[in-house]
């Protein structure tokens, strides 16, 4: 090794050879030792380090002696090589057996990450489709009233807002005919919200079933709000309103109390923001979990929104 010894300075700015340089000096690995030798003679700290490393080094030298004496005759090189070849062959045979023993019918299912991703994609697609179908404008009533009317009907309800002088006529067509209907869901042509109606011109629900509808008044419109009326619920029950505004801030769940006549009214402040449309409203009785509105009220337009058609509401689904 070259004699360019590396030195470092201590706290008192005194130069000392680095510890591994002292070790190299002890082991006779340094070329030029004069400087380090001179320093060690004068420095007590380095003498101590030198002593420590020398003693450790002397003790550890027995490792070399041990290594020279150790013998392992119990396993010959040929034996080791034979074992290696045998082990490798066994591993190859085992892997081949594993391949051939796997019949197509009994192939084990492997939970590969790709399968998980594909399954997740499929589930999300199905969920998206279901949500889209649920909230789409055209409405499917699967369970109509049980009073002899068609059990399944397609209804698009387009009653005008009260302020616009509404007298919609209602016709109900059985599903599959493609006929559209203007009115409240269950073929009740009398269900016309009147602009002058106050407090709430609630349509008669089919066979007294729970039902929600828009019963806004001009006062509501002036305040950029709307009234939601429910009827046919069990008197005294508490009903939760699911109000969803995909384009605006969702009011979320609103709790209302059903009065003695089985009705309720809720005022929903919308604001002068037409991006909140459409608005979906659905009522669920929380006291009696089996009771809920037969329809999904869909508000597609608002009177104060430029170019909008009258408010749209209609039944979507039932129990």
């Amino acid at each position: 090794m070259a004699g360019n010894t590396r030195w470092s300075r201590d706290e008192g700015d005194k130069k000392h050879p680095e510890q591994d340089e002292i070790f190299a000096f002890i082991r006779g690995e340094l070329g030029d030792t004069s400087a380090i030798q001179k320093h060690i003679k004068e420095c007590s700290d380095c003498q101590h380090t030198c002593q420590l490393l020398y003693e450790g080094s002397q003790k550890l030298n027995v490792l070399g002696v041990t290594a020279a004496y150790l013998r392992y005759p119990e396993r010959s090189p040929a034996q080791i090589f034979d074992n290696i070849v045998k082990t490798v062959r066994e591993e190859e045979q085992r892997s081949q057996r594993a391949i051939f023993s796997r019949s197509p019918g009994k192939r084990a299912f492997v939970l590969h990450p790709v399968y998980i991703v594909l399954a997740a994609l499929l589930v999300s697609l199905l969920a998206t489709g279901a949500v889209w179908a649920f909230f789409s404008g055209n409405i499917n009533v699967s369970n109509g009233p049980k009073d002899g009317s068609p059990s399944q009907q397609t209804v698009t309800a387009e009653p005008t807002l009260p302020s616009q002088g509404i007298t919609p006529t209602a016709t109900v067509a059985p599903s599959g005919t493609g006929t559209t209907t203007a009115a409240t869901p269950a073929s009740s042509p009398t269900a016309n919200p009147s602009p002058t109606a106050s407090p709430s011109p609630i349509a008669t629900s089919p066979a007294g079933k729970p039902y929600v509808q828009d019963c806004s008044t001009p006062q509501d419109q002036a305040a950029y709000s709307m009234s939601i009326c429910g009827q046919g619920f069990t008197p005294g029950d508490r009903v939760v309103l699911f109000i969803i505004m995909p384009g605006g801030k969702n009011p979320g769940l609103q709790m209302v109390q059903v009065d003695a006549s089985g009705q309720f009214k809720y005022s929903l402040v919308i604001g002068n923001n037409c991006r909140t449309l459409p608005i979906y409203i659905y009522a669920q009785d929380t006291t009696n979990s089996k009771e809920h509105s037969l329809n999904l009220l869909v508000i597609k337009s608002l009177a104060w929104c430029a170019g909008s058609s009258p408010g749209t509401q209609g039944p979507t689904r039932g129990r």
Partner: peptide, 23 residues
């Protein structure tokens, strides 16, 4: 074989283990 087994023997401190590890 001998030096590697000896090295492993000294390192792990067990003759039989060293032989197996050499293998």
């Amino acid at each position: 074989q001998q030096p590697v087994t000896g090295y492993l023997h000294r390192l792990v401190g067990d003759r039989e283990v060293a032989l197996d590890l050499t293998q």
